[in-house]
């Protein structure tokens, strides 16, 4: 390594301040990568969540495939109501569409439409949760409680975790809706909607996986 190079003259530092864009509306980020801290943070968090759900899904797959002699209660697979779950999966899937439409509206500063789509997304999410509550109660009525057997513990834990994620997402969507109503969500801060959207879509793709691995593929 040579030591002979001149260090950068200090004026460069002063120069740099002039490059700071003055246009408040431009979505520029003064970071080394040019990416926003918040968005990068959310992606990191989602990467981490992959391992959380991976673990829960694995625990379920392991225990569903296990042949337990004299297992108490019914097997989870015998209770599935596939048409019902298909509908609620479809509802969650479409909530991803309304989410992205809301983002696209707020980026165009079309606040009324953005709010409508935000609320629609939250409602679709709530419909999904209601479906999950119905599913759980009907399973319990058929004799599959949380502690009944291995499969039931794993099933309720996995889908319950997912449900909690959806619920948190709904809370965030409602907060965004209220913020927007109060005028605290101008188009320049559309990134907030985008970040909540990332979380929402993530919850959706996790359900895409759960729907196939847990519900559709036979044990």
């Amino acid at each position: 390594m040579s030591v002979s190079e001149q260090t950068a003259p200090p004026e460069v530092v002063a120069d740099r301040a002039d490059h700071v864009p003055h246009d408040a509306a431009a979505p520029a980020h003064h970071t080394s990568t040019g990416l926003s801290n918040e968005k990068l943070g959310m992606w990191l968090f989602l990467g981490s969540e992959c391992l959380l759900f991976g673990g829960l899904i694995s625990a379920f797959l392991l225990y569903r495939s296990k042949d337990v002699e004299g297992m108490v209660g019914p097997a989870v697979g015998d209770l599935y109501d596939i048409p019902f779950t298909s509908v609620s999966s479809f509802v969650l899937l479409m909530s991803s569409l309304t989410m992205v439409l809301s983002l696209s509206a707020i980026q165009r500063a079309d606040h009324r439409r953005a709010r409508t789509w935000l609320l629609t997304t939250a409602m679709l999410g709530a419909t999904f949760i209601a479906g999950q509550v119905y599913e759980f109660t009907s399973f319990v009525r058929e004799g599959l409680g949380y502690t009944t057997n291995l499969q039931s513990s794993a099933f309720y834990t996995l889908t319950g975790f997912h449900g909690v994620h959806v619920t948190i997402g709904i809370l965030m969507l409602v907060s965004l809706f209220v913020m927007s109503l109060r005028g605290r969500l101008p188009a320049e801060r559309s990134e907030t909607v985008e970040i909540v959207g990332l979380y929402w879509h993530f919850v959706d793709i996790i359900w895409i996986i759960i729907f196939t691995l847990v519900y559709l593929i036979p044990a």
């Binding site: 003064h30 926003s36 801290n37 968005k39 959310m42 994620h165 907060s175």
Partner: peptide, 18 residues
């Protein structure tokens, strides 16, 4: 940028809430 952290509050908070 540091001031910008404040501007992104909603986002920070929502990530945190999650």
């Amino acid at each position: 940028e540091l001031v910008g952290v404040g501007a992104g509050d909603g986002a920070t908070a929502s990530g945190d809430r999650a």
